[in-house]
Computed example of a mutant assay.
Amino acid sequence: MSSTAASGGVLAVRALDPAAGGTVVARLDRGTGVLDPERHSLRNGPVRLDRKTVAVLTSDKRRTELMVSRGIGWKYAVVPLIEVHGGQAVGVPAEVARALADELASRGVKETTAVLAPLRAHADHLDAGGPVASSPLGRYMGLGGGGALTSLGDF
Rank of each mutant, 00 (worst) to 15 (best):
S3A: 11
T4E: 07
T4D: 09
A5Y: 00
S7N: 12
G8D: 12
G8W: 11
V10G: 02
L11Y: 08
A12W: 07
R14V: 13
D17F: 05
A20W: 08
T23P: 08
T23R: 12
V25M: 15
R30T: 04
R30A: 07
G31Q: 15
G31W: 10
T32V: 11
G33S: 14
G33D: 08
G33C: 14
V34R: 01
L35Q: 12
D36P: 00
E38D: 09
S41R: 04
L42G: 07
R43N: 05
R43H: 09
R43D: 13
N44K: 10
G45I: 06
R48V: 13
L49W: 07
L49P: 06
D50L: 08
R51P: 03
K52L: 07
T53L: 05
A55C: 08
V56M: 11
T58P: 00
T58C: 02
D60S: 02
K61N: 02
R63F: 12
T64M: 11
T64Y: 09
M67H: 14
V68M: 01
S69T: 11
R70L: 09
R70W: 03
G71F: 12
G71E: 15
G71R: 15
W74F: 15
W74M: 14
K75Q: 13
K75F: 12
Y76F: 14
A77R: 01
V79N: 05
L81N: 04
I82E: 06
I82D: 00
I82A: 05
E83R: 06
E83N: 11
V84W: 03
H85G: 05
G86T: 00
G87L: 04
Q88I: 01
A89S: 01
A89C: 02
A89E: 05
V90N: 04
G91A: 14
V92N: 04
P93A: 13
P93R: 12
P93E: 14
P93W: 01
A94H: 12
A94S: 11
A97M: 12
A99I: 11
L100M: 13
E103G: 07
L104V: 11
L104N: 08
G108R: 01
V109Y: 03
T113E: 09
V115Q: 04
L116F: 05
A121Q: 10
H122G: 01
A123I: 06
A123G: 10
D124K: 13
D124I: 10
D124E: 10
D124N: 12
L126F: 00
G130S: 15
G130A: 08
V132S: 06
S134Y: 03
P136A: 01
L137A: 05
L137E: 04
L137C: 02
G138S: 09
G138F: 00
R139W: 01
Y140L: 15
L143P: 01
G146M: 07
G146A: 11
G147S: 10
G147I: 06
G147Y: 00
A148Q: 12
A148G: 13
A148E: 15
S151V: 10
S151Y: 11
D154C: 09
D154S: 06
F155R: 04
